[in-house]
């Protein structure tokens, strides 16, 4: 299991390749990458991501451990960036390895749902009009209830 909270960019292909190489004997590898998306109608200059150093790593580790207790997983990778990102940049990735794809897919979705509202990150959108903190949505919270 590897957790990385970092300000620099990551190489998705290299990370996926290394993760797969280490996942000997696993029948399924699922990867997900989140990308900074422009606002509907455009105008997003940057996304700034603040986090809580120390707690962030602990919270993500706890979420990943919880995934490992729920599904038969061989390995888990979570990379999440903070700092200033522009549209098109990759914010984060998760990868899961499991003997069977059902577990790998479910665990990846679980990780994503929990990273969204239980890992201490806060996004701020920067436009020509100014800066705006992104609000958490009821849908984000509701997504946790299915687990």
């Amino acid at each position: 299991m590897r957790i990385s909270v970092q300000d620099g960019a990551f190489d998705f292909a290299a990370q996926a390749r290394a993760f797969a190489a280490d996942a000997a004997g696993m029948g399924a590898i699922v990867t997900f990458t989140g990308v900074v998306r422009d606002l509907d109608g455009g105008g997003l200059e940057a996304m700034e991501i603040e986090h809580y150093p120390g707690m962030t790593e602990k919270a993500i580790s706890a979420i990943a451990q919880e995934a490992r207790t729920r599904w038969a997983l061989g390995d888990v990778l979570v990379i999440h960036r903070h700092g200033r990102l522009v549209p098109g940049e990759q914010i984060m990735m998760v990868a899961t390895a499991a003997p069977h794809r059902g577990d790998a897919f479910a665990a990846a979705e679980f990780l994503m749902d929990y990273l969204k509202s239980r890992a201490p990150f806060w996004k701020r959108e920067i436009t020509a009009a100014g800066a705006h903190w992104v609000d958490a949505t009821d849908a984000d919270e509701a997504a946790l209830k299915r687990w």
């Binding site: 984060m92 969204k116 509202s117 990150f121 806060w122 903190w133 609000d135 958490a136 984000d140």
Partner: peptide
């Protein structure tokens, strides 16, 4: 003790 708004990661 830390205070913050609901988190928006992912």
């Amino acid at each position: 003790v830390a205070f913050f708004p609901p988190m928006t990661g992912g």
